[in-house]
């Protein structure tokens, strides 16, 4: 047995158990671990409890593919590209019919909940949420599951009077404790040191909070080379358990310095996912009928992949047009 953390996507995703609490890194349509998520769907994972802060196409796909029973997120969507139709459909159908429950949070409280998890604390105080229906006890979508499903805190929030200073009421939010954290990185050392560029979002905190962290990366680099510039590194190797080399592993989301969002993907997916049938056909064609990420990339095609490549200084591709109704074919 080698002690190498390097493995294939199939091997890495094999470590993930049905029913676990799974965090996906990145931010909406930026640096999402899409290749690992496609593999989760291929392996037919079930009953997952998803955490994202915030979620993008990866959550819409997993929810649509029937892999999910719970989501806790501040947002699930594709930004200005269009709406998350699978997520929307399941929520509108209702948990009685789908068995799927979604709970709404906010960017700040999601971040604090991960920070609490990263620090080994059971909860964190916040001054946010007051006045909002997010803490309306009559509107807690997880109410019937609390105290029964061990993946969820026994209540959504709690309140205390500040015992130290002015005595104001403060809201407490429960720690997030993901079993697994999935991150897609620009670079990872062969031992697991992660270098994220163009924004780490909550990925460091989630890796610290999680029991198992799997990192896919655009490229694997010698650990020694990462020690040349330690201040540019984001996550230490000691909390990374599996590494997958996966160029274009966040496609169709954007990876700073590597590639931009793929507007053609979003146009295609959004058109297909408007109806459940179309979503199913899309999923079969682009995920289930393919063996792995290499086949997926081959199907996207070199021309399109090259057309997404980012300017190394700007970090994005200034030629990419982001308005879907005026998109032209790649030529």
């Amino acid at each position: 047995m080698s002690d190498s953390k390097l493995m294939s996507a199939r091997e890495a995703v094999n470590l993930i158990e049905d029913g676990c609490r799974l965090f996906t890194g990145g931010w909406t349509v930026v640096r999402k671990p899409m290749g690992l998520v496609y593999e989760l769907i291929r392996q037919g994972k079930k009953n997952l409890s998803l955490i994202s802060n915030p979620g993008g196409p990866e959550i819409d796909l997993l929810v649509g593919a029937g892999c999910v029973s719970l989501t806790e997120s501040n947002y699930i969507g594709h930004e200005v590209f269009g709406h998350p139709y699978s997520f929307r459909r399941k929520v509108e159908e209702g948990p009685e019919r789908t068995g799927y429950h979604h709970d709404d949070w906010t960017v700040q409280t999601g971040a604090l909940r991960l920070l609490a998890g990263a620090m080994g604390l059971p909860f964190m105080p916040t001054l946010s949420l007051k006045g909002s229906d997010l803490i309306n006890p009559d509107l807690d979508p997880m109410r019937e599951l609390r105290g029964k499903d061990p993946r969820l805190p026994k209540q959504k929030v709690a309140f205390i009077k500040d015992p130290f200073w002015e005595g104001e009421e403060v809201t407490l939010v429960p720690a997030l404790r993901p079993d697994v954290c999935l991150i897609h990185a620009q670079e990872v050392g062969e031992q697991g040191t992660v270098r994220l560029k163009g924004g780490a979002f909550l990925d460091y905190y989630a890796a610290m909070a999680a029991k198992l962290t799997i990192v896919s990366a655009e490229r694997i680099v010698p650990e020694d080379s990462l020690r040349d510039l330690p201040q540019a590194n984001t996550i230490p190797a000691q909390v990374v358990h599996a590494i997958v080399e996966m160029p274009y592993g966040a496609h169709p989301t954007a990876v700073w310095g590597f590639y931009d969002n793929d507007p053609w993907w979003f146009k295609d997916y959004l058109t297909a996912s408007k109806e459940e049938e179309g979503f199913g056909a899309w999923l079969k064609e682009w995920v289930l009928d393919l063996q792995n990420h290499d086949e997926y990339l081959a199907k996207i095609g070199l021309k399109r992949l090259m057309s997404l490549r980012a300017d190394p200084v700007l970090g994005y591709n200034p030629k990419i047009r982001r308005r879907l109704d005026k998109l032209q074919e790649v030529n």
Partner: peptide, 21 residues
């Protein structure tokens, strides 16, 4: 109604935090 919505949107993002703080 929130628990059985006619149309579901993406959600708060940071909007709630920003409006409160």
């Amino acid at each position: 109604s929130y628990l059985h919505p006619e149309k579901r949107f993406e959600g708060s993002g940071g909007a709630c935090d920003i409006a409160v703080l």
